[in-house]
Design a protein around this nucleic acid. Sequence first.
DNA 1: CCCCGCATAATTGTATACAATTATACGGGG
DNA 2: CCCCGTATAATTGTATACAATTATGCGGGG
Lengths: 230, 230
Amino acid sequence: MKVENYDVKKEVTDKYSLRGRVFHKIREDILSGRYKVKEELREVAIGEEMGVSRTPVREAFRQLELEGLIRIVPNKGAYVTGITVKDVRDIYMIRSLLEGLCAKWATEHISREQMEEMEENIFLSEFHASKGHTEQMAELDNRFHEIMYEACNSKMLEHALKDYHQYVLRVRKKTLSTQTRSTASNAEHRKIMEAIKSGDGELAEQLANRHMINAYENMVENGYMEHYEE
Amino acid sequence: MKVENYDVKKEVTDKYSLRGRVFHKIREDILSGRYKVKEELREVAIGEEMGVSRTPVREAFRQLELEGLIRIVPNKGAYVTGITVKDVRDIYMIRSLLEGLCAKWATEHISREQMEEMEENIFLSEFHASKGHTEQMAELDNRFHEIMYEACNSKMLEHALKDYHQYVLRVRKKTLSTQTRSTASNAEHRKIMEAIKSGDGELAEQLANRHMINAYENMVENGYMEHYEE
DNA sequence: CCCCGCATAATTGTATACAATTATACGGGG
DNA sequence: CCCCGTATAATTGTATACAATTATGCGGGG
């Protein structure tokens, strides 16, 4: 039998099975903060809430554990994981390197459509920034990075970066609501885009690199790290 | 209720539940090559072989999917994933950056015991290399990297690197069996160790960086990439 | 001969029942 | 009053039953 679309690391896209729906719902609830850190998730409770049995809930748990959102203790239960201040720092350092690599590869492989979407993204970002539309700005910021992840032409790198991106998303909206940072962020996005467009991979790498460091330092300076533990 | 050992991303260590045993068994069978790439894994067959029902097998599947060893197609089945030539290349490029970062951080955080194990590891590697003990050499090579992962003092980075390491392990033994490469590899390990010991993080980073590139180029030159698809 | 449609078999998805383990409550001894 | 053991309840782990989906094989029409 033949299987197409052979991703090495496949994300959970099965939104239409019960397990898939449970997975995405719990994930949403964790990221949105409905479930607090270290809160215990009970299979029956979640199953009843969604009108399903424990079976799909348990399977969703197994996946959420490997996604890093919960931790399962055998014979005990499933607990929402916390991200420590150090974890966030480490992630940004790792991302700094990988986003740089991604920008370099994107320079070599970006398609016409992707380039257009990126330019459009920056145009819209600057527009919404001038209007103070924080919601759209956060959305566009996420999308900018995702375009780059997709453009780098590497399933492995794309998956890794989306993973980390998702991870720190719990606090990202707060960070971007700072007017000054979002303006600076937009300017950095524009420079990265221009470097990619001009075909200067080395420059794109350096800029993307620096972009992450700046974002991290801004978080620290503004005390956003206090949202995390330890 | 309190939960200790709060890893953000937890690996599957539950070896004593049925599901845990199934997980590790299937993983072994995939890595050892018993199951071929694209082979379909049937829940009942594996369950019968291990004398368990489908339930623990299914849960093990969900975890193996996110580990990237199998791919589950909804309502169809579970298939052993292949790694393409490009995937391997991408992983080595990513690892090059991350191993560098890891070496730099290890320089700052390595403990006395870890340093001793690392020196011992290199001593033993050189010994077994001179005797041509390929099995032990592969084991020690893996362990060298794991010591560094543990020494970097970052759960996030350690997890990511172990992940990638695991990933390319399917073909690693073959690579190391080349006498010349293993000698070169040992020399590189020694230099990395010495840089860490002397506290030169920048140098350790560069060496670890280069070490990965060399390992990759050696694979290509010796045609080991042909074990992969595409 | 090939292609299509339908019946049947095989396989996965989910629900439920029961077993094993762990948490909780209560009561007696110190 | 506290500590501890035991009984009970709650929760997770596994097996099984059934539903839904997909693969397979066969016969008829072209």
